[in-house]
Write a protein that binds this DNA or RNA. Structure first.
Lengths: 122, 122
DNA sequence: TCGATATTTCCATTATTGTCGAACTATGGA
DNA sequence: TCCATAGTTCGACAATAATGGAAATATCGA
């Protein structure tokens, strides 16, 4: 993931209403939720919600699809995975820590943070 | 991690200069870097950098300690771990997905995202 | 076709964030 | 003590983000 993309995704999640909306969509799963349903859940006026959904969409974190007169939004799990990967790779273990032996889960998947190996440090 | 804390941490990382500063501190490891060193690395005026470091500090992502006439900043790995945990638990698998069998790494550590189990969905 | 419902766009307003020079504070060395 | 260096705070401004009513757009059912 590009830095610019990561900043965009982080910014999209760094807002109460948007984080709540995103979490609701995660709970809803791939089926997603209609915009109005989310507005009801969060008690937010439609115009405001639409603004925030557009923001999440721009960040690639959610996807919209038309379903009759409803617009169903759903979480884009891949993008969140990519964000977690970015944070783990670039913001936890540092770029040279790929084979850090003390860090649990240097295997295929992103996992918990720990400091980079000593030799990587300036 | 509280939602408010998560939003704060996300907001702190959702800015070019701050993300770059944080990444530099991660690379530097527990020893940290002096404020001026970071300002040089990022080519940012001291006043501006100070503003951003304060922001990261407020979010709990970095810690400052005085060392003679220098102020050494270092990454707070625990807080990033907590953030990753929050995102994984609350924003990837949903609250009811603790025992989701399809999701790799439902073990102790946070790991990649995947949708919540079907029975958890509305 | 028409009215009801769902959602977005437009727009004005307010609030928050980012920038950085200049002044201020603190520390160490001469 | 005095000066140089390291950082922070202050203050003013610019830029961006958030809010939500009102109007516009789109779809469905009658």
């Amino acid at each position: 993931m590009e830095i610019k993309t990561a900043v965009g995704a982080l910014a999209a999640l760094a807002q109460d209403t948007r984080l709540a909306a995103y979490r609701a969509l995660v709970q809803a799963g791939p089926g997603g939720l209609a915009a109005g349903r989310i507005a009801d859940l969060l008690a937010v006026p439609p115009a405001t919600l639409s603004f925030h959904l557009k923001e999440l969409d721009r960040a690639g974190l959610i996807t919209a699809r038309q379903d009759g007169r409803y617009v169903l939004y759903s979480a884009n799990f891949d993008q969140m995975n990519a964000l977690l990967g970015f944070l783990t790779e670039n913001c936890c273990r540092g770029p040279d820590a790929a084979a850090h032996p003390d860090c649990p889960g240097t295997a295929a998947l992103p996992t918990a943070c720990c400091p980079p190996p000593v030799e990587a440090q300036a």
